[in-house]
């Protein structure tokens, strides 16, 4: 894990965001919207690069800023996407934003998925709810570099069909023959002819082989707990399991103190961790 990615952030003004503009808003679910934005300074936009899994602090000056995973892939050069669940003060204000509105952004921050170390490996992706946001960036990156990886299986779970994000992507992922994509909802609903059952159980039933496989999971704490237990039963070692953590953050640069998990800061050492990195501190 590198602790010094920090591209894109001015070293001497790390807490000062760059003005940006929303160019598109996608209503994903009743509580989740994706916001596509561009930096107002075309030079910054041109230079902007990141790894899937990296985060940004997007905000509205006067309201505040919050941390979000970038949900677009690095190959997308014309916008940066964040998928935001309406939860608190800042995210409620963000949900009011429309195309053309001004925001301010500090990104990219943190360390992304170590995709270079995963070349030649099978990748198992399991995302629950809004936890799919960073995994979308990862999956699209993998699809952009499909030949570098082995088998790709993707499990995406949500409570109800209406809670599943990324409608357009899902249709595409389901059609592709070079990945196995399964969406599941927690319990049966009229009009839903897909899989039913909580994500860890559906994933375990698929019996993904642990050998030469990296498992990447992200979702609510309950799902993570069950998914970890399922992966252990499937024979995955701690070093094979990666997750991306969320904590309350203010600075995003390892100084303000609140996002630590043991001696590590989620904002700079993470948000991507292998289970081996975290030990019992999770």
């Amino acid at each position: 894990m590198s602790t010094v990615p920090r591209k894109g952030i001015k070293a001497t003004k790390p807490l000062v965001p760059e003005p940006a503009t929303i160019i598109d808003v996608i209503v994903e679910t009743p509580s989740i919207r994706s916001f596509r934005l561009v930096f107002d300074d075309p030079g910054i936009m041109k230079e902007f690069s990141f790894a899937p899994g990296q985060i940004g602090l997007m905000g509205i000056p006067g309201v505040g800023e919050s941390t979000f995973a970038i949900s677009s892939p690095p190959s997308r050069r014309d916008y940066i996407q964040f998928s935001v669940m309406k939860t608190g003060f800042v995210t409620s204000a963000i949900h009011e934003l429309k195309a053309g509105d001004a925001v301010a952004l500090r990104a990219p921050l943190g360390c992304g998925f170590p995709v270079d170390n995963w070349k030649g490996k099978n990748i198992l992706i399991a995302g629950g709810g809004i936890g799919m946001a960073p995994l979308r960036s990862l999956l699209l990156y993998i699809l952009d570099h499909r030949h570098q990886f082995g088998d790709i299986s993707v499990f995406y779970g949500a409570r109800t069909p209406a809670d599943l994000c990324f409608v357009g992507d899902r249709a595409h992922w389901e059609e592709r023959e070079d990945i196995a994509f399964i969406a599941t909802i927690d319990s049966g609903q009229p009009g839903w002819d897909g899989r039913t059952g909580v994500l860890p159980r559906v994933m375990e039933a698929g019996r993904p082989p642990a050998e030469n496989t990296v498992a990447v999971i992200c979702g609510p704490p309950v799902m993570i707990g069950y998914a970890l237990a399922a992966l252990a039963r499937l024979g995955f070692a701690e070093g094979q399991i990666f997750t991306t953590l969320e904590r309350k953050m203010k600075c995003g640069i390892g100084l303000c103190g609140r996002c630590n998990v043991g001696s590590k800061y989620v904002c700079t050492d993470g948000p991507v961790f292998s289970l081996a990195d975290l030990g019992n501190e999770i």
Binding site: K13, L15, V16, P17, P19, T21, D40, P61, G62, A102
Partner: peptide, 20 residues
């Protein structure tokens, strides 16, 4: 204060200006 900011209209759009 880390910086001050100001909203202003630039044509159709709202823009943010940041000053440290």
């Amino acid at each position: 204060r880390l910086f001050s900011f100001r909203y202003h209209r630039a044509g159709e759009r709202e823009k943010i200006e940041i000053e440290v």
